[in-house]
Simulated scan of single mutants.
Amino acid sequence: MSSSLSGRTVLVTGATSGIGHQTARLLAERGATVLVHGRTAEEAHAAVDRLVTLSDVRASQLCAYGADFSHLEEVEQLAARILAGHPHLDVLVNNAGMAAPERHTVTADGNEIAFQVNFLAHYLLTNLLEPALTSDAGGRVVNVSSSLHRTGSIAWNDPNRTRRYSRLAAYAQSQLALTVFAADPRVTAVSVHPGVCATSLLPLYAHEGEPPAAGAAHVVRLCDPAVEIVNGTYYDRDQRVSPAPAASEARTVKRLTKLADLLVGQSA
């Protein structure tokens, strides 16, 4: 039987559909207070309404927040609202993600859009929420990554891939960066590939996938304080495995931190 998560507060980004929505449902059904993030406040409130209507979840367990991760200013505003309303945060699930578009697309902040939405926004959000992320046993960050990080490389001299753009390479780079970020010593974090699921990202992987709830179960397991984690660990579903070699190199972690600080600083 699953243990209760009553008394714990969890923020799930990208919780209006797919794995994120099912993660929010499973966490709330186990008693957690869940902060439901969506691209807009309207989408987040609609997701909360669905959870209350279709699940055994009380409205008092759910809080809706909107922020478009293609605008870093909105990420900063989101962090400020969460710190004001929830100064004690047990778990941050960095789940929001998008497939890189066919055409090279740059955000208003000047970053390739998949790199910003999938990685930079989560990097900024995690750092801004660090004061709220509890140091109590079980406090952690769970990065929902991808097995495709193994095919990626970070274009250090051209992270926006302006000289040579491929949507698959851009997506893989964003997932590799998110996986590397789990080894950042500032917070306790892990990464997980939740499996190939029937979500909007399915065309990147295969023609068929498991239900999103199956992937969400692997994410929720890592949110449970009864599951001990080691910083920087990578899971393929419920199995601890080695990530791509670059993801555990101290030099790469430091280099990525320096690059990310530079890129998110553009919005300041």
Rank of each mutant, 00 (worst) to 15 (best):
163 R>F: 11
4 S>Q: 14
60 S>M: 08
139 G>V: 01
101 P>V: 12
179 T>P: 06
253 V>M: 11
79 A>V: 03
223 C>G: 05
149 H>M: 05
220 V>N: 01
202 L>V: 05
107 T>K: 09
103 R>V: 15
163 R>I: 09
105 T>H: 09
214 A>W: 09
52 V>M: 08
27 L>I: 00
109 D>K: 05
48 V>A: 03
234 Y>S: 06
107 T>H: 08
109 D>I: 13
31 G>M: 11
217 A>T: 13
131 P>D: 04
206 A>C: 00
112 E>M: 11
49 D>C: 12
260 A>R: 04
52 V>R: 05
22 Q>W: 12
53 T>C: 10
159 P>N: 03
163 R>N: 07
26 L>T: 10
62 L>N: 02
1 M>K: 09
4 S>C: 15
74 E>W: 11
25 R>L: 09
109 D>C: 11
56 D>Y: 06
46 A>K: 12
69 F>M: 03
234 Y>H: 10
72 L>K: 06
46 A>P: 10
135 S>N: 13
209 G>D: 08
260 A>L: 00
144 V>G: 08
210 E>N: 13
121 A>N: 01
11 L>R: 01
41 A>E: 15
36 V>Y: 00
118 N>W: 03
199 T>L: 05
17 S>T: 15
50 R>F: 05
135 S>I: 07
154 I>F: 00
64 A>L: 07
241 V>G: 11
78 L>G: 08
172 A>P: 06
259 L>D: 07
217 A>K: 12
